[in-house]
Nucleic acid binder design. Sequence first.
RNA 1: CGGGGCGUGGCUCAGCCUGGUAGAGCGCUCGGUUUGGGACCGAGAGGUCGGAGGUUCGAAUCCUCUCGCCCCGACCA
Length: 479
Amino acid sequence: MSDAKLPSHTEDFSEWYNQLVLRAELADYAPVRGCMIVRPYGWALWENIQQALDRRFKATGHVNAAFPLLIPKSFLEKEQAHVEGFSPELAVVTIGGGKELEEPLVIRPTSETIIGYAYAKWIKSYRDLPVLINQWNSVVRWELRTKMFLRTLEFFWQEGHTAHATYEEAAAETRQMLEVYTDFAVNEAAIPVIPGRKSDAERFAGADQTYSIEAMMGDGKALQAGTSHNLGQNFAKAFDIRYLDKRGELQYCWTTSWGLSTRFIGAIIMVHGDAQGLILPPRLAPFQVVVVPIFKTAEEKAIVMEAAQNLRTALVGAEVRVKLDEREGLTPGFKFNDWEMRGVPLRIEIGPKDVASRTVMLARRDQPGKAGKTAAQQDEIVTVVKALLVTIQQALYDRALAFRNANTHEPDDYEQFKSVVEKGFALSYWCGSSDCEAQIKEQTKATTRCVPLEQESREGVCIKCGQPAKEKVIFAKAY
RNA sequence: CGGGGCGUGGCUCAGCCUGGUAGAGCGCUCGGUUUGGGACCGAGAGGUCGGAGGUUCGAAUCCUCUCGCCCCGACCA
């Protein structure tokens, strides 16, 4: 709340983002490089994300558990690709209780290994399968370059880990959870996403197949917003996760893992935010409605506050998350701007005139200024507010989708491709060779984001080399 | 790790070149007037200049080293 204005999000998106995170009080910098303190407002948003996801996990048969933070270093080394992928970014504990440890312990960068260890102990028979466990925790990866929410040394997430009797079951689980993430992104966060398969280069260390949902941020760059891995039998073999099948034969399990992190908060900021600040989707917003009372004299204050409290009571009773701004000494205008910056989807203004006429003024966050203002009867406030929240939720999705469509192109040739990918997505045929992928990355900074699951046709030529190609791929610069 | 920028009250920064022992705006506290789109006036509190060492009668200022942060690149959810 220091300077009046944020940096322009069209001119300096990065600085706009940094300042918004701090000023909206989502998070603050920690004393350790690359770490963040999630403040109550940011955590409330995360809790709503957690609830929306956890509901879906439970509905698909998963249960929650907790595995340890510290993992024997040797565990990480059991799966070849996994160790190669993660060893550069491990934080390792070598001293405990003042003494050098016999075996160093790594702070989990992800829990495939420790869970693999546990699953090997627990799974003996096909009757034990499937195992469908999720955990909410934080992990540490020693990233070189960090940014609030998008990439921090420690981040909060959920990681689901499942074990199955067959490849088909594991594949179905992987895809099911991708669908769960898609549903969550679209229906809770109002963020349109493209579910798809990752290229070999972009695949998770130790997975046979990685799927992701990809979203377009307000600057045209892509953000991987959730991932789901089919781990094949890689970890089953490394950790000896085996079961006896119906015929009495010993089989390796098929495992999966899937995760969505606090990075998603970054996505919400960058997809919906505007020049005024955050715009939070009603279904996830810590406060869906803020009531700003307006008065001059003590008598006015008394009647306005009473009416405002009645509004709050009515809305709370209807399970609307509402905040009554009772702060003293701040002008209504200041409060308007403050809550707009913090992204509250709907504002109710109530002053002496409204009390007299039993009305209120409603202001939509997604439509700045007069355009978003309407009057409503106090008696009908619950109905009107609930309907408006649904409308706003939908409007945010529609706007994000329109923006993505406007910035997604199917270039005819490589020259066009290069300019398209400067800001936005290119949907192009790709032959599948890592060489083309690497060259494109070097020449344009754009990487393959995913091979969308939905494909129109199945024939074309690679945008880079002109060789026959079967699938279209999303290319974009990415966070 | 390479390139660039920067560390001075809570925040943004001036002062540094041309050493003399610290300033502004915002925020904060108190009082008053205000309050339908970021109010105003007055009075206060608050820093020894990222850290260490050196030069000097004297260092925020000059020198050396060091730590940290931000931005851009290579790695990543």
